[in-house]
Amino acid sequence: MKFKSWKDLPEGAIVRDVPTSPEFKTGDWKSRTPKYIPEKCTHDLLCWLYCPDSAIHVKDGKIEKFDLDYCKGCGICASICPQDAIEMVEEEV
């Protein structure tokens, strides 16, 4: 969705082909990164539910991956996990 001029814009200021926000990466906001420990994971999906950034992907009821392109490093996933299957690690600067 690369608009160059006002002539490219849809009338009425609407946005088509939604959602478009994945084109905007928020992964660089974080100062800590979730470290997933699959051995401890029971796939209760609480981290998926509470991840504010839809950065934890689930497939067939199982945690598939952590998408660090969008993870803002809030750490809710780690704090909510009853199995301690996620640890937050400080990012190296």
């Binding site: 959602p19 926000s21 994945p22 084109e23 905007f24 990466k25 928020t26 906001w29 974080k30 209760d44 999906l45 609480l46 998926w48 539910l49 509470y50 991840c51 504010p52 950034d53 839809s54 950065a55 689930v58 009821g61 998408d67 392109d69 969008y70 803002k72 490093g73 809030c74 750490g75 809710i76």
Partner: peptide
């Protein structure tokens, strides 16, 4: 179940600009 919920929606797409840790995306998802 959360598995059923996960098959229905992912809620808001990634890339929104809510503060880190804001819980309202989870509310929207539910």
């Amino acid at each position: 179940s959360l598995k059923e919920l996960s098959e229905r929606t992912y809620g808001l797409a990634s890339g929104h600009r809510a503060c880190a840790g804001c819980p309202f995306p989870s509310i929207v998802k539910m």
